[in-house]
């Protein structure tokens, strides 16, 4: 498996540091098939496949993506297999995962209660 989004960092003694014995599987991002290494975090597969916007900030609607890479910042939160707010930098790829960006919440409706009935 080779991909433009992948790289090799050789150790000084010539062994590959990162790309060893990977099994690639298919999962779904917004319904579109994406290839990822089994067990690597979802965000890594998406990044390698060129998908950078992993969600939108709820307040501004602006794109956000992986930031800290190890589960502290929650910027890469996505809906994975129906579960909200999953950190895609931690969540391991498995065959057939359903990965989606979280919808932006709508503005809070301002209804005057005195006129509701």
């Amino acid at each position: 498996m080779s991909s433009e989004g992948r790289l090799e960092i050789p150790t000084p003694d010539g062994e590959s540091q990162s790309n060893r014995k990977k099994t690639f599987v298919t999962f779904y991002f917004e319904g579109e098939a994406v290839s990822g290494a089994l067990g690597e975090p979802v965000a890594m597969s998406l990044w390698a496949a060129g998908h950078r916007t992993l969600g939108w900030n709820e307040e501004t609607g602006r794109p956000r993506s992986l930031f800290c890479g190890i589960g502290h910042c929650f910027e890469c939160r996505m809906e994975i297999d129906g579960k909200r707010d999953q950190r895609s930098c931690l969540y391991p790829v498995r065959e057939g995962l359903d990965v989606r960006r979280q919808s932006k919440p709508g503005a809070l409706a301002i209804v005057d209660g005195m006129t509701r009935l």
Binding site: E58, E59, R84, D85, S103, P105, I110, V111, R116
Partner: peptide
């Protein structure tokens, strides 16, 4: 932050 379950 996410979907709400009503405005009141």
């Amino acid at each position: 932050k996410g979907p709400l379950f009503g405005d009141a």
